[in-house]
Nucleic acid binder design. Sequence first.
DNA 1: CTGTTAGCGCCTTCAT
DNA 2: ATGAAGGCGCTAACAG
Lengths: 344, 344
Amino acid sequence: MNERSVTLRDVAKRAGVHPATASRALNEETRARGLVNSDTVARVMQAARELNYSPDPVARSLKTRRSHTVGVLIPDLTNPLFPPIIRGIEDRLAQSGYVALLGNTDNDPDREKLVLSGMRTRRVDGLVLATARRRYSVLSELNMGDLPIVLVNRVVEDRALPSVATDDAAGIAMAVTHLVSLGHTRIAHVAGPQELSTGAGRLSGFIMAMEAAGLEVGSESITYAENFSVAAGTKCCRELVAHKLHPTAIVAGNDMLAIGCYQALEESGLKCPADVSVVGFNDISFSSRLSPPLTSVRFPHYQVGIEVAQLILERIQAPTAPTKVLFLPPELVVRGSTAKVATP
Amino acid sequence: MNERSVTLRDVAKRAGVHPATASRALNEETRARGLVNSDTVARVMQAARELNYSPDPVARSLKTRRSHTVGVLIPDLTNPLFPPIIRGIEDRLAQSGYVALLGNTDNDPDREKLVLSGMRTRRVDGLVLATARRRYSVLSELNMGDLPIVLVNRVVEDRALPSVATDDAAGIAMAVTHLVSLGHTRIAHVAGPQELSTGAGRLSGFIMAMEAAGLEVGSESITYAENFSVAAGTKCCRELVAHKLHPTAIVAGNDMLAIGCYQALEESGLKCPADVSVVGFNDISFSSRLSPPLTSVRFPHYQVGIEVAQLILERIQAPTAPTKVLFLPPELVVRGSTAKVATP
DNA sequence: CTGTTAGCGCCTTCAT
DNA sequence: ATGAAGGCGCTAACAG
């Protein structure tokens, strides 16, 4: 019995009604609006069940211009930050009969355009972007302004786009406060790329928190990573330890950079945390298993995914609804990579 | 200019031909068969380019009954084994204009059925399963026998399904040989779930390798994990160290179980590798950053993804082609979790 | 409340 | 080699 051939027509025939009526009977919306006799509804549903009917989403999409599909752009699935977020997104979308179409861009604007236009071609109903830069022209270039969009873990400069993220500045402040409470005063920052809101927000959060603690932030206490990678972190940390400041603690823009710091410290024969404390951001899985276990700013990744999906679904329903910008609170997870400053 | 409205008709009109002709001109197949004047082809392609036309995949699917979509079932995206495989799958699929629809099943047969029928409803052209058990009835139950299917990292009992995996037995043999060369004789195995081919294959590989090395495998040197999780590994390892065998080395069914062993060893005050060496399987990312860095059997995850995608695409093209079963070679990555046996 | 009609955008006979 | 016609399965507009 080939089920792919069970069509609405078959159901209608079996129920003794016109296909259109069957459609209305099976469609939540029209049924609820009382557009069809509850008697017929029963008969149609019965027939549908008997035939094991399931509507063809392709045909439906063609008519309704809705694909029940959301494009999700990320830099790289392999970055452990993303899987839990994606999981959240997919779980929430599934609840509403939607699916996610993943696209990896590797932070390459060309790939980005390629993937985006692919998504438009596939008629996605909405877009979730974890790839937005602070000034983000790609969307307008590709003429995708009309598509519902939500950002994850990013905000754009004018906050004109709905987004779900954590409060970067607050998170970094927790890290700084923690280090200060351990007696550190020479605290450095490995800043992420400044064209990303996370990079910029964490840097300015760092500066503010330092000032609030009455500590100076010289130019030699900040290095800029090209990207959020282990290699970049290593490079930055090398500069930091080579410099005259001799920081006793480093706040890294994220966990990757922090791991990079581990490596640079090892190279220079410095012990973490005995000589230098390190704090990361994101609390990716297994950071508790690193050596030493990484102190990091955590935010609820899976929940972020859920919220993002929720938001994009709302926007798909009501594209002109006000632009929500949602911040989920970070928390500091203290582990073995931070310790009291060594008394000199 | 709203591009979603550029239709084949528009292109045809601009080129001064009938839509059908335009269709033939733009379609690889028909064009190659010389069914259309090369002159008209040029005109049509020109027009298409000018209008920035891209065919509506939905409409096309309705007609051709091809969704250009592949369902990919995995237990949990959050397991670090999968992201690189998925990345490989998506990259290869994208090359051929296909996309992956991810489904997380959490190893729950009910969820599995749910996700699978969702995929069928969405008219996926093929299925990639990382969730297959050795005896896998779900497919026939759901009447999906007609759909092209490829397994990843799994084989089924009768090898009736095409698959891409690594040679589990060979990998484990490498681990055992390595430990033997370090002087270990009391080697234990934390076996994965036996209903999974990886669990079973690695166990039998372990037994064979031990016998080949002239070592005994008593029942007390093997424990069975309920699933491939850290918690299960801890539980198993606890049994192992409590027992009279006092193994000096443990071969874990995968990295998760190995990490679980780390934890149990810590609890009992045993040092790894000084007291007990541990070997994992999969070499998930960051295993080099664990404490101690994990010795593990690696296989090329990304490449596996590529091959899987390749295979499913082939099957979609030619569903009756012979059933390929592809094994990619494993290699042993030696790190800090294995050391010479302590001389008693 | 239900049936009729029409068409979403494309492809594929069947003629010409 | 091209045009005409029909239909994939569904739903929306309009009658009745």
